[in-house]
């Protein structure tokens, strides 16, 4: 890549990987759109938290607060018709992939207007039409499915690629190993995007791994890989842009480890005995939204006032979604066996 990079602007990731700075060439409108998506995730999760506190969510929810740059940066860097698989912590991926906030919120409240007609809830939201092959209640459960979607792309030669999102915790499931190996030997167009948010439930990566970087596992599969700053939207966007190009050119798969942090408890109930308030505070200081907003304002792409207006717009959109969800009907008991075929 060395020569052609001289003409284009260069971007260097936190672990020294050199690639084209595709972000700098984007239209301002796209850059602002990414900020809007981050706000949507943040406020969607804040609203969800309120529903949890008010006892309106029957099951559990895993909030994506603090990790917004990874989902938005990565999914903005691929095409609308590319595929993703998501996780139990899936609201951010879902919103980034273009899901309708009303329909999402309705699903969380178990309403028949929700994405799964109330049958799935937070952990199973899928929007196959928009290329979102589903959140997943099983840690690592999406890794094989994503690999299969990449096989389809290759067999159909349709030029599409897949981003497989999974957590640091999922990287220790057997299916992580066996799927990435298959993707490697078959050169499948897939980005394995490990969201390292420091914990799998209560277990820290220090306790669960004996390697410094999860991306070092690339060596075991003979593939490319790197560790990026997952709280820096520009870095996530550039890395995923670069490797989506590689995947489309038949040089996949790749393993990207995105370093980020979960601000909230693991799920509905979590006393968080495994971490300190100080640690949380340090990561909140690296707020991905604040950082990205500063880049846009500093680059005169957005004024402070426009930023405030944008956030306000998003907040009212979320209020709208809650209203829609609350006013929607519950499913009828007779619907319980709809879609049962055997």
């Amino acid at each position: 890549m060395g020569n052609d990079l001289k003409a284009k602007k260069l971007y260097i990731t936190i672990d020294g990987y050199r690639m084209e700075d595709k972000f700098s060439g984007l239209d301002d409108s796209i850059k602002i759109e990414m900020l809007r998506k981050m706000y949507q995730i943040r406020h969607f999760e804040n609203e969800t938290e309120q529903f949890i506190i008010r006892g309106m969510i029957h099951g559990t929810c895993h909030l994506y607060t603090g990790e917004e740059a990874t989902a938005v940066g990565a999914i903005s860097a691929i095409n609308d018709d590319d595929y993703i698989t998501s996780t139990h912590r899936g609201h951010g991926h879902c919103i980034s992939k273009g899901a309708d906030l009303n329909i999402m919120m309705a699903e969380l409240l178990g309403k028949r207007t929700g994405y799964c007609k109330g049958k799935g809830g937070s952990m199973h939201i899928a929007d196959v039409d928009s290329g979102n092959l589903g959140a997943n209640g099983v840690v690592g459960g999406g890794i094989g499915i994503a690999t299969g979607a990449a096989l389809t792309c290759k067999m159909k030669k349709n030029g599409k690629i897949v981003i497989c999102f999974f957590g640091d915790g999922a990287a220790n499931q057997g299916i992580f190993h066996s799927s990435i190996n298959i993707a490697s030997i078959w050169d499948l167009p897939i980005i394995y995007l490990c969201e390292n948010n420091v914990y799998g439930m209560s277990t820290s990566v220090k306790e669960a791994f004996n390697i410094e970087k999860i991306s070092d596992r690339k060596c075991a599969y003979g593939i490319e890989g790197l560790t990026i700053d997952g709280n820096n939207l520009v870095e996530v966007f550039n890395a995923v842009s670069h490797f989506s190009g590689e995947c489309r050119a038949g040089r996949g798969p790749v393993l990207i480890e995105s370093l980020t942090y979960r601000w909230r408890g693991h799920s509905k109930s979590d006393a968080q005995v495994y971490r300190t308030k100080e640690e949380i505070r340090q990561w909140v200081e690296k707020d991905p939204i604040e950082r990205y907003k500063r880049i846009l304002i500093g680059g005169e792409i957005l004024t402070e006032k426009e930023d405030k207006d944008l956030e306000k717009e998003v907040i009212s959109q979320i209020e709208e979604a809650s209203k829609f969800a609350m006013e929607s009907p519950f499913p009828e008991p007779s619907e319980v066996e709809d879609d049962v075929y055997a």
């Binding site: 029957h58 178990g110 028949r112 049958k119 319980v336 049962v340």
Partner: peptide, 16 residues
């Protein structure tokens, strides 16, 4: 239980 996976929504879960 009914012959289906366990659904999310309380109404459906109680039916299953």
């Amino acid at each position: 239980g009914r012959n289906c996976p366990v659904p999310y929504s309380l109404v459906l879960e109680q039916e299953m």
